[in-house]
Amino acid sequence: MPKIEMRVNGKPISVETEAETLLVHFLRDRLGLTGTHVGCDTGQCGACTVHLNGEAVKSCTMFAVQAHGAEITTIEGLAKNGKLHPMQEAFREHHALQCGFCTPGMIMAAVDIVRRKPNADEKTIRQELEGNICRCTGYHNIVKAIASAAAGMGARS
């Protein structure tokens, strides 16, 4: 079995795992980080989105072994020292979630959007959300939350 070493939410991990273990299953089943969800089979719903070296990726579309040496952040690692990330705050403030299932992936994707496009307008935000499907909100409040968080995150940095 291949051995993999990585940092997950800041903690070093060093374990052996079957090569065929998908990153999402590794996070959920091996590390107990069940905030990252599986919503489809084809890499389209985005519920499994995590950050790999700071970039949004779909953890259902890579094997854990491919993350060897990488820094992974999941939804559980987004809040720092008990303080919610501004994107988490914005989702709550703007009612950008209902059932909550797509939410972790949506928030991880949203943080990545703002990192790349801090001044994204509504149209851009909607295009950037192409890889994340929500069935509850009609996206209306998600778009609002991301725009608002972008403004807040910009002000902070």
Partner: peptide, 9 residues
């Protein structure tokens, strides 16, 4: 191509 997460990989 694809979506942002796909483009990262």
């Amino acid at each position: 191509i694809g979506d942002p997460a796909v483009r990262h990989r």
